[in-house]
Amino acid sequence: MTEANGNQQAPDYNGLQAAFINCTLTPSPAFSHTECLMAVVQAIMEDAGVTVEMFRSVDHDIAPGVYPDMTEHGFDSDAWPEISKAVMASDILVIGTPIWLGEVSSECRKIIERLYAHSGETNDKGQYIFYGKAGGVVVTGNEDGVKHCAMSTLYSLGHIGYTIPPQADAGWIGPIGPGPSYGDEQDDGTRVGFDSDFTQRNATFLAWNLMHTAHMLKQAGGIPAYGNSREAWDAGTRYNHPNPEYR
C-alpha cells in the first residue's frame, strides 16, 4: 500500500523496545532541552508501535566506574544494575546529551563508561552482549560541537557492539554563546528550534533508521556469529586468520 504522496505505508514495528537515556545535567522535574528533542524521536517510535522507556541519568544514583555493579567496588549504592536491565532488554538505545565546552556532558561520559562495563559479557552466540542492537544519539546546545559529540558517542556505541545505522544522529544548536536553547518558549509563543527543518528531518530519519535497523537485525536473528564470537576465539577458533609465520 502507498500513501497519496507515493511513499510506502509506514511500517508497524510493534514488539520493538527502545531505551532512551537523557544525559542532561538538569534533574527532574525541571525542563530539559535535550529531552525535548529526544521526545520528537520518541513520539515517532511510539507511533510506529515501539515501546520506549526514558531515563534521565542525573535523577538516578548511578556510580561512576567500569564495572556492571559498582557496589562490588567500593560504592555504597549504584542504580546502574537496574537501569542496565532495560538497556539489555531493548533493541534500540538512544543517548541524548547537551554540549558543554564542545564536548558531551559528564553524565554522558559516565553512561558510556557504564555501558563499557559490560564489554566482557557475551550473548548466546558467544558475541559481545550488544551485538544485534541499534544505537543512535541526540545532541543539543548553543555552541558548536554537535557532529563532534555525535562522532565520539557513536564510535563508543559501535565499539562495544551496537549497530549504527545511516543518519544515526540528530542535533540542534543556536547561536554561539549564551542564548535560548532548543524548546525554549519565545515571546510570540513559538518554541526555539521547532522550525528547524534540518533538525526535524534528521530526528525523523534517525528514528526510522534505528527502527529499520533494529527490525532487520531481529528478523535475521542478530548478526551472524561466524568470525566474531569471542567465546569461540578464546576456545581456539581462528576463523581463517592468517598465520604470520607463513606469510
Rank of each mutant, 00 (worst) to 15 (best):
146 V>R: 02
38 M>H: 08
234 D>Y: 05
157 L>F: 07
108 C>G: 07
102 G>P: 06
14 N>T: 14
40 V>F: 14
230 R>M: 14
241 H>E: 15
187 D>V: 04
31 F>C: 06
159 H>R: 13
150 A>S: 15
165 P>M: 01
237 T>V: 15
2 T>Y: 11
236 G>F: 07
40 V>T: 14
241 H>N: 12
104 V>G: 08
104 V>T: 14
141 G>S: 11
174 G>Q: 00
210 L>N: 06
175 P>W: 08
174 G>A: 05
59 D>T: 03
16 L>P: 10
107 E>A: 05
223 I>K: 01
208 W>Q: 05
62 I>G: 03
179 G>P: 10
100 W>I: 04
11 P>S: 13
33 H>T: 10
6 G>L: 07
210 L>M: 09
33 H>K: 02
126 G>K: 00
176 I>M: 09
245 E>F: 12
21 I>M: 10
178 P>T: 04
54 M>R: 03
232 A>F: 01
226 Y>E: 15
205 F>Y: 11
205 F>L: 15
46 E>H: 01
66 V>I: 14
182 Y>M: 01
64 P>V: 01
136 G>W: 06
6 G>I: 01
217 L>F: 12
63 A>L: 03
102 G>I: 02
58 V>G: 08
92 I>A: 04
34 T>Y: 09
229 S>R: 03
230 R>E: 11
203 A>Q: 09
96 G>L: 04
69 D>C: 00
94 V>W: 14
138 V>G: 09
227 G>H: 02
9 Q>D: 15
77 S>P: 01
24 T>Q: 11
136 G>L: 05
88 M>P: 02
239 Y>E: 13
199 T>V: 07
222 G>P: 10
193 G>R: 00
147 K>W: 11
10 A>K: 09
111 I>G: 13
198 F>P: 03
171 G>L: 00
117 A>E: 11
71 T>L: 11
6 G>K: 02
246 Y>S: 05
231 E>Q: 11
18 A>G: 06
197 D>E: 15
149 C>E: 12
119 S>I: 11
178 P>C: 09
174 G>D: 07
225 A>Y: 13
215 H>G: 14
120 G>R: 06
150 A>I: 05
51 T>V: 13
119 S>E: 12
69 D>E: 05
